[in-house]
Every structure is written in C-alpha cells, then in structure tokens.
Amino acid sequence: MDDRQLLRYSRHILLKDIDIEGQERILSGHVLVIGAGGLGSPVATYLAGAGVGQLTICDGDDVDMTNLQRQTLHREARIGMNKAESSRIEVATLNPDCHVNAVPARVGPEELPELVRQADVVVEASDNFSTRHAVNRVCFALGKPLVSGAAIRFAGQISVYDPRQESSPCYACLFPEDSPVYEDRCASLGVFAPLTGTIGSMQAAEVLHLLVRGQSALTGRLLLYDALAAEWQEMDLPRRPDCPVCSERNSGMTGI
C-alpha cells in the first residue's frame, strides 16, 4: 500500500480483525457480482469503497426510471444504459483502486464457469431462480463461496453457501431445483427501497469477511428480515443428503 492507500483505508486498518494484512487481501480480491440492481448496488458500492481490487459486475438489463428508487448505482442521466456499464461508470468515481469488468449480459451456464473461476467470492444479487440455480451449480463445481441475498416487498433473506466447508449446504438444499418455479418480481410485487440496502450491505460484509478471514459466520445459517416489524429471525440450514447439486462432494461424508 502507498501513502494514499494507508490513509484511504485507515479506518479498516485500525480494526484489529482487518489490519494491514486484511486490507491487502481486500485490495487483491476479485469479486463476481451477479446483478446490478437493488442488492448489487450496495454490494458494489461498499466493496469498491473498501478497496476490492477487481469487481466483475454482470447484468443484462438497462437502467429504467423505476429502478432509481432503490438502485443507488444508477442515475437518471443513464436511463437506457446497460446496468453493468452504468455500475462501471459509478464505481470509477468512487475509487480508482477498484477495477470493474462490466459484463452487459444475463449470464447463464455457458458464461458462468469462466467468470466464477476468476473470482475469489461470488455474490448472488439477481432477480430470478434460474440464474440463482446456475450460479450455485458453478460455485459448487469450482469450490467458490457464494453470498446469496434476496428481497421482495418488505421481506429479505441472506445466507452464505461455501463449498469449501464440509457442513455447508448449497442453495439447492434450501430451494430444490425441481420445485415449481414461482417468480416474485419486484416489478409486480413492489420492494421497499432500504430493504435492498440492508440485505445488500450485509452481503458486502460477508464478502469482506470471506476475503479477509477466508470464512463467513453466516455459512449454514439463513437470516430472515421483516422490514415491516424491524425483526430478524434465523434458522440453521443443514445439507440435504439427497441434494442433486452438492451431495456428491467431499466423498466419505454422510451429508449433514
């Protein structure tokens, strides 16, 4: 770190759980963010500000007027621009230490392996189950930790799925791939703006823990946030012994 960086990241360096060593890990980190919407906005903002060296941000949608109530990466002047590209422009104004690779596409099983392979941590901030399942499969195939958040109306969820931890479930242990697909879109159901900030900020926190310490305390736990009652609940997430995505990993294990 040079003098400017020592100053810029001094409030992190002061934290004994981060220190210079942890900040250097953040600076050399590469995070893949799937979705540059309500969750992706706080994720990218906090990670860029904290000095994550590389962010790959994927989104196939364009900025729309209805996004701006909560998607803080975007601006009215960029309505019509691809969201990944809009994010790259915004992050460049936040921190020159953070390099953004913008992927202006809805990524799927074809594109994901190469993108996930290059990343240290993957953030799920998309708006649909098919992308979420595809990302989960690739993360578990390649052994990359996945920080997954979701938000709709006044309800939010967050968990971490880490294939490197034997006891960790995968996303499909919680949401089986063969469940009937029900898409709960913000466009039809609505979403409370700061809810996405709350869940996305927590996702950013778990990404930083994974970069600094290599693990997240949220692995194997699901947090449920009720933004109407200002209440959190949590539940343990066990592995599903018959999960078609992750039950084969760590041979010799019985599952849970």
Binding site: G37, G40, E124, S126, A151
Partner: peptide
C-alpha cells in the same frame, strides 16, 4: 406462526 414463500428478488 411465520410463513415465507420462496423469494428471489434482487
């Protein structure tokens, strides 16, 4: 009694 649907919004 609290009941949640599957949620995927982002």
């Amino acid at each position: 009694l609290a009941i949640w649907p599957p949620v995927a919004g982002g």
